[in-house]
Write a protein that binds this DNA or RNA. Sequence first.
DNA 1: GGGTTAACCTTTTTT
DNA 2: AGGTTAACCC
Length: 720
Amino acid sequence: MDVSHIFDQLNDAQRDAVAAPPGPMLVLAGAGSGKTRVLTHRVAWLVEAQQVSPLSILAVTFTNKASHEMRGRIEGLLGFPVNGMWMGTFHSIAHRFLRVHWREAGLEQGFQILDSDDQLRLIRRTLRQLNLDEGYWPPRQVQWYINAHKEEGRRPHHIPESEDRQQRELCRIYKTYEELCQRFSLVDFAELLLRTHELLDTNEPLRTRYQERFRHILVDEFQDTNSIQYHWLKLLAGANRNIFVVGDDDQSIYGWRGARVENILKFEKDFEGTTVVRLEQNYRSTGNILKAANAVIDHNRGRLGKNLWTQDDEGEPVKVYAAFNETDEARFVIDRIGRWVDAGNARRDVAILYRSNAQSRVFEEVLLDVGMPYRVYGGLRFFERAEIKDALAYLRLVSRRQDDPSFERVVNVPTRGIGNKTLDQVREYARVNQLSMWDAARALLHGHELSSRAILALTRFLELIDGLADNCRGLTLAEQVEAMLKASGLVAHHQKEKGEKAEARVENLEELVSAARNFEHDPEDGQDPLAAFLSHAALEAGEGQAEQWEDCIQLMSLHSAKGLEFPLVFLTGLEEGLFPHQRSFEEPGRLEEERRLCYVGMTRAMRELYLTYAEVRRLHGREAYTSPSRFLGEVPTDLVTEVRGGSALTRSGGRDFRSPAAEDAAAPSMRLGRHVKHSTFGDGVVLNIEGRGEYARVQVNFETVGSKWLVLAYANLEVV
DNA sequence: GGGTTAACCTTTTTT
DNA sequence: AGGTTAACCC
């Protein structure tokens, strides 16, 4: 068979990787070096040239987006769909596995997935049950504790008995949380992985079966695997050792959620005779951008070492802009985008990147102001919205009455006269008799503990759910969702509210019906359509906004930008404390991760890269002075041009980025936003600085007399 | 029991 | 600042 089309567009190193003989294979692929290409071509090569059945291939990615893209590209290469291939995120594959083997895994058939928000709620409930104070045991920290242990493969009984009372107590919370999960048949994200691993580890026939089935395993973004995922891969790769992993230690940015870069080093030891291929030719960025990014990442110790090069021209220098504040930063960025678009370029080719999602707001405001279409990735996802989760909780309850968290969530939403007093009694009855809330409520209807009003209200709720379950038989998924929205009164509830937000909620609920209608359910996967839809909602939270084909500016966090590329990139908010983030200062390891994040951001740019920072930034409601990020200082000055306002000035010499720009422009003691005192005008805030030396003037907004321009040399301002 | 206001807490990144 | 939960009044 002619397989030349698989090799046509590859360079030598890529070709070596794609056509490597069976056995363990580690591809160290720098940013923009054709990582996904190697992976997809490898699959195509296995299937076409080696006659490997897609059924015996397992391909793992980290994000749903990457998985969809990979499938599309493989099918494009092969020219036919690869339905039988197991391909998806670690979590979705684990879920698929547990669905088939729910019995062996000790689960109920209809088990549901907890997303982080659900998990947090359940932890709160656990704390309540143990009579622990949330103030003393912050639920988020408990959540972190539990997930960290699960990601390392530790159950409560694996945790060594500690001298520390607090540690012992945390372990007890973990244990109780697990019991609740088991009782309600709920599985959190980390549990999906851990259960799968334990099942493969202890059940030898099953392990052998899957080892024989998955003759070839391919892993994308290998630097992001955590302990449990790595062990899982080792188990599956088993004796045949056909495991092909692709990764880049410089792009490891998920250490905070348990990813272990060391897995790259361990891989070579654990799989003896590993072939290592390095992909160092970058096909994405200009010479200057690449040199700048290389220079930054070079400040990290503990790298495997790799230097990207390109045949591309030097291109434009990297541009740096020092903004007065975050609004000025946004205006500058959008002004530059305006010029870019005026020059005939597409808006979709521009990305605004930031460290944390909260930073998108200012950009959104300015974009709305100038009427430029944009799209924000990340942030609140569709299936994470409160009203959607309410609706899903109804559906979960219809599908499984024993789901206590869902029961609690919607029993009184919209309000139907089932208050805390009634619920406390139900909870107590459930606890004493080891029943679910549902069964406890039903039992209490026939007792004398509840008031007649409560009994009436509860009866109506139970009948509502039972009635829905009855009526849903034979209906399509979308019809079921519609029936639920109507009967529960959720839509009516939000329609009664006023304000834009309420309207958006109603629209979202309507959108849920469309989502159900468009949901493609594979009849072979063994779940009923409703259950499949619910897992889909938990596993794939959906994009923040509906897919838009309009040509618009892309806004996203640095983390979600990984794997993407854009001709024009703005990397914003380069300030100490913001990026690198405050919480990375404590450990050097965290700081290096921030630097890798910076590297990821810079290497997204193909033709032009802007780095911006603000001298004053409003954060958490406080105005704060900032100093430029250390990462700015790590870019060699000859690659950079500093831009001010409208005109670009070439930087002369290496200015120290740690000293704010306004200081050398005017008097050393004056800075924008600084509070000052004048002998006659009183207290005020510096709005603007102009000129230098004895001609320096400042604009001050005084509390009593408003804004005035003053010549600094005569004004005798006192810094407060 | 329901609705409003006040205090409070959090606020990195994502499956 | 923003959103959420707890206290408080109707």
